[in-house]
């Protein structure tokens, strides 16, 4: 009897889409700080896009996992989606995918509770996004059925190149100052300034 390929195709497509969304979210995050487009993009809008892409990527990862579980090609048990090494199919490379998804979920959720865990701790955790990207790339290359296809190789190469380029830009350039009213005359002192806290 021929197996229905719907979930297998869905698993492959959602995995690839999640990787693209993760890459786009990282690029938006890097644009947020380095501001390569100057004042053409509003910080608050880029922040929204960054968060939206992250959430969408997480949703796509969930679809990737559910599709793999429902599919009959690799027969993925539920534990294989959450416990590294529990997958009978390519255990090492699937483990990388499990760790990628779990760490990404942690990073996305941490934004909403950043005051509770401490903003500095949240910021440190945010650096782990690079680990998510590296593990996600390796997972795609090693576990992905389509990785040998020229279009898939081009996609991985493009994603890695874009993130490396944007990170280098972020590290090497001084960000543009946001538009402010700084050079305008200060408003009349009708209010009492509140002292700012400092470290």
């Amino acid at each position: 009897m021929k197996t229905d390929p719907t979930f297998w195709l869905l698993a492959r497509a959602s995995g690839m889409t999640a990787y693209v969304l993760l890459t786009a979210s990282i690029l938006a995050g890097l644009v947020l700080k380095s501001r390569p487009f100057g004042r053409a993009l509003k910080v608050s809008s880029v922040t929204d896009v960054h968060r939206f892409l992250s959430l969408l990527g997480l949703g796509m990862l969930a679809l990737h996992g559910v599709s793999l579980m429902l599919d009959q090609t690799v027969k993925m048990p539920l534990a294989g989606l959450f416990v590294p090494g529990a997958s009978p199919y390519r255990p090492t490379s699937v483990s990388l995918g499990v760790l990628t998804a779990e760490l990404m979920a942690l990073i996305v959720v941490s934004f909403s509770i950043r005051k509770r865990i401490g903003v500095r701790n949240w910021r440190r955790l945010h650096w782990a996004t690079y680990a998510v990207f590296v593990m996600g790339t390796l997972h795609g290359l090693l576990a992905g059925t389509d990785s040998s296809q020229p279009w898939a190789k081009a996609l991985y190469l493009g994603a890695v190149g874009a993130v490396v380029f944007a990170t280098s830009w972020r590290a090497l350039t001084r960000p543009t100052r946001p538009a402010t009213a700084a050079r305008r005359p200060a408003p009349a002192p009708t209010t009492t300034p509140v002292p700012e806290r400092s470290a």
Partner: peptide, 16 residues
């Protein structure tokens, strides 16, 4: 309004 400048990283969303 109170700003904790030890946390500020200069994103500038507020100034926009």
């Amino acid at each position: 309004i109170v700003i904790d400048r030890s946390l500020c990283s200069g994103f500038g969303a507020c100034a926009e």
